[in-house]
């Protein structure tokens, strides 16, 4: 597995973690307070802001841990290659040194994956409008939009993995 794929997997894990924590918190609060919580838009706005802020911190921490693990693996590969004089391992650690930057294929994959994620966000937005049309509480609409953004970013990650595995064509 290559550097960009590993990086994408850490992003997916971060997204899943944020979504899971938010859903667990939302459901537990709903069970605690009851129906009246659906009318409390301030609560949902605060919960979403905390999820966004906390999410950014979680992503930063996971990325730092990922890079520490990668650096350790890199150093170990270097030492092993020096001792064994093995070319294939040398290739592996040199790969880590170069892969930090994005090249043209990475950029193309990122663009195509982002386009796919916008589909999710679009579907989420229309669903949110439909929920209002069906006279559901505004909190439901807010939650649909928020979750569709997170699902969009997750779908972006999965699309990237798909394109890295199956290949990507220009045009």
């Amino acid at each position: 597995m290559y550097y960009q794929e590993k990086k994408t997997i850490t992003s997916i894990i971060s997204g899943l973690l944020i979504l899971t924590l938010y859903v667990i918190y939302g459901i537990s609060k709903y069970q605690e307070v009851g129906e009246s919580l659906l009318g409390d838009l301030k609560f949902w706005a605060t919960a979403m802001l905390v999820a966004i802020g906390g999410g950014i911190i979680v992503i930063i921490i996971i990325q730092i841990v990922f890079h520490i693990i990668l650096a350790i693996a890199n150093e170990v590969a270097k030492e092993v290659s020096k001792k064994a004089n093995c070319e294939s391992i040398k290739d592996t650690y040199q790969e880590f040194e170069i892969m930090e930057h994005e090249d043209e294929m990475d950029k193309l994959i990122a663009l195509k994956a982002m386009r796919n994620s916008f589909v999710w966000v679009g579907v989420g937005f229309v669903s949110a409008l439909l929920s209002l049309y069906m006279k559901m509480p505004p909190a439901i609409m807010l939650n649909i939009i928020f979750v569709s953004f997170i699902l969009g970013s997750l779908f972006e990650g999965f699309s990237q993995l798909y394109f890295y595995r199956k290949g990507v064509k220009n045009g």
Partner: peptide, 29 residues
């Protein structure tokens, strides 16, 4: 090696592997 070619062309080895396997068509550059 693919790594050497990647270094000389300024892309990642992953891109060279994808080009070799016809999974990616490189830009003219």
């Amino acid at each position: 090696t693919q790594q050497e070619l990647a270094k000389k062309t300024g892309v990642t080895r992953q891109t060279i592997v994808a080009i070799e396997n016809s999974k990616y068509s490189p830009t003219l550059e």
